[in-house]
């Protein structure tokens, strides 16, 4: 090994060689054992001690095999299950908290609503009914396995934003993904609901119509949400028409639709 060789390796690792020079280095690695050994060590040092890089081992190393065997044994598999379980419980506790808090709010809002009804004999407020029935906390989750692809990761992020009531930013993501992933039913729901929260009622209506026209069997969920959208705008008669469709065809949430209809008709 000459000083020149070290400089060559140096420049290779820093990525400053031309393509021809790089090929020469790769060629030399095949034929020159000493050069190859030095190169390996230099590369390991460089990749390990550079804060941005990482030095990978060969998966063919015998020690990799030893650890693999251990990892696939019962003991480690049991631990894996425990970790899985704890991780899921952790998610559930946050979710449960959200849910019970939501139920509390829902119950409170019904009490307030009934109070108004009794004392002021006011007409039914579509907005209040919307809030009572929309159940934002019961929406399907985008959370997937650890090896989620880029789009799935984006959706999880958007869902988090949505749950934090950052509807504007979450909608931007949902709308952009919806352009390419037209088969994902949950995506329509989140998009529509975020649009409603941002008072983009016309857009929300289009979203729900697209959902209804979606060939998937779950596309009919769009009727329920469209009925709620009309409620939100106090278009009670329009809402009743859609709710009647939900009930007569026994679509998604038809029991709730019945209940809602009876409240609207009581008025």
């Amino acid at each position: 090994m000459t000083e020149k060789d070290y400089i060559l390796i140096d420049n290779y690792l820093k990525g400053t060689l031309s393509e021809t020079e790089m090929e020469l280095v790769l060629e030399r690695l095949k034929v020159d054992a000493d050069f190859s050994k030095q190169f390996k060590l230099e590369a390991e040092l460089f990749e390990t001690l550079n804060d941005e890089e990482w030095s990978f081992v060969s998966e063919k190393s015998p020690e990799v095999e030893e650890y693999k065997l251990l990892l696939n044994e019962g003991g480690m598999q049991d631990l894996k299950h425990t970790i899985d379980k704890v991780s899921k419980q952790k998610d559930n506790t946050t979710r449960k908290l959200n849910k019970s808090f939501f139920y509390y709010l829902a119950a409170a809002s019904i009490v307030v609503f009934l109070g108004f009804q009794l004392f002021f004999n006011q007409s039914v407020s579509g907005k209040a009914l919307y809030n009572d029935y929309v159940s934002l906390s019961e929406l399907p989750s985008f959370a997937t396995r650890s090896n989620a692809n880029e789009i799935e990761k984006q959706l999880v992020n958007a869902q988090i934003l949505f749950e934090k009531k950052n509807y504007k930013e979450s909608l931007a993501i949902f709308e952009s993904v919806l352009g390419t992933e037209s088969s994902n039913i949950s995506l329509y729901l989140y998009t529509g609901l975020a649009q409603v929260e941002l008072n983009q009622f016309k857009k929300a209506e289009i979203t729900y119509d697209n959902l209804i026209n979606n060939p998937s069997i779950d596309g009919s969920m769009g009727y329920w949400y469209k009925a709620l959208l009309y409620l939100k705008q106090d278009r009670l008669d329009d809402s009743k028409v859609v709710l009647n469709t939900v009930v007569s065809k026994k679509l998604y949430n038809y029991k709730k639709a019945e209940e809602l209809l009876s409240q609207l008709n009581d008025e």
Partner: peptide, 11 residues
């Protein structure tokens, strides 16, 4: 996963 974890141990 197990190959990945095994490699990461050595690294």
């Amino acid at each position: 996963d197990s190959t990945d974890i095994a490699m990461a141990v050595l690294e």
